[in-house]
Design a protein around this nucleic acid. Structure first.
Length: 292
DNA sequence: ACCTCGACCTGGGCGC
DNA sequence: TGCGCCCAGGTCGAGG
């Protein structure tokens, strides 16, 4: 779930409430999400630090301090929410028709692995059902340091993401264009949903060799990537099951998806039945008529 | 160096 | 109602 638009949605929803707050306590219920980092180091490294800017590069959310950064990667089911004690807790509720979970803030449960208490009594909770996500601090405090530590490619919402950058990266790859776009060292932030959507809008088959995407297709793909990401952010992210923003709200971008998850349904453009296959190890949906 | 595949973890949905 | 099986948005390391 959490691809660039979802992570950006989380960032925006918590940035203001936590800015200027100082961490007074860090509770780690399940050290698995720290991936080997000693719990005591994690706690002592954070307590006393004051949160400033909330940053994002690709799918990575990070909070820089003077000489280090708190990093959060949501994996598949991670949720970072800001809980205010004076507000009433509600359980996770499933919408009857859409099946989507939402909550207006909830107390920590068995999936809430880390709680970071701030000096205004509010709390940042990291909750992650499948535990593919990670939370930890690193010694870098600037974007360049973070980007090189995690070997992240350009963030597509920065000016570094140009048609020529896209062209150069695709030209040198022998894999399917779908797999190339999922490579975070090339472009940081795209995942299975937004890649399928962008390739559909650009009219390019996911199985096409990356090096065979050229000329006009580059311009179309570049524009399509920006379009789907911006649309996703404007819709508050795509909630297929677990995604909520920092305030517990589900997104609604799933309502506007053109191909992802619509295998067997008809193409919105031409009516052809959408196909399904595997590229880059991921389930992929496309229209064999509209995508060449 | 590049690429593919399985592993990591839990829960939901479906068929029997 | 219950069990087994398959599937899921992301990454990482092993091995070809």
């Amino acid at each position: 779930m959490p691809e660039l638009p979802e992570v950006e949605t989380v960032r925006r929803s918590i940035a203001e409430p936590i800015a200027g707050k100082t961490i007074v306590d860090v509770e780690v219920r399940d050290a698995y999400v720290l991936r080997g980092q000693p719990v005591a180091d994690f706690q002592s490294g954070l307590v006393g630090s004051t949160l400033g800017e909330s940053c994002r590069h690709g799918k990575l959310l990070y909070f820089p301090f003077a000489d280090r950064s708190l990093c959060v990667h949501l994996g598949m089911t991670g949720q970072l929410t800001h809980r205010i004690p004076s507000r009433t807790d509600t359980p996770f509720l499933r919408h009857e028709k859409t099946g989507l979970e939402r909550t207006l803030q909830h107390a920590p449960d068995k999936h809430t692995h880390i709680s970071i208490r701030l000096d205004d009594e509010s709390c940042l909770h990291y909750r992650d059902i499948r535990k593919f996500g990670r939370v930890f601090w690193v010694p870098e405090s600037e974007r360049t340091g973070i980007v090189s530590r995690f070997r992240l490619g350009v963030d597509p919402l920065t000016e570094e993401f140009t048609p020529s950058y896209l062209a150069l990266g695709l030209r040198t790859r022998r894999t399917a264009v779908k797999a190339a776009l999922l490579d975070q060292r090339f472009i940081a932030g795209l995942g299975n949903i937004y890649v399928d959507e962008a390739l559909f809008i650009a009219g390019i088959r996911p199985g096409r060799g990356a090096y065979r995407v050229r000329g006009r297709m580059i311009q179309d793909l570049h524009a399509a990537i920006l379009l789907v990401l911006r649309k996703g952010i404007a819709a508050g992210g795509t909630t297929l099951r677990d995604f909520v923003d920092g305030q517990g709200q589900a997104g609604y971008n799933q309502e506007g998806l053109l191909v992802y998850g619509r295998y067997g349904e008809s193409c919105a453009t031409c009516g052809e039945t959408l196909k399904r296959g595997t590229f880059g190890g991921r389930t992929t949906t496309w229209c064999s008529v509209c995508q060449k």
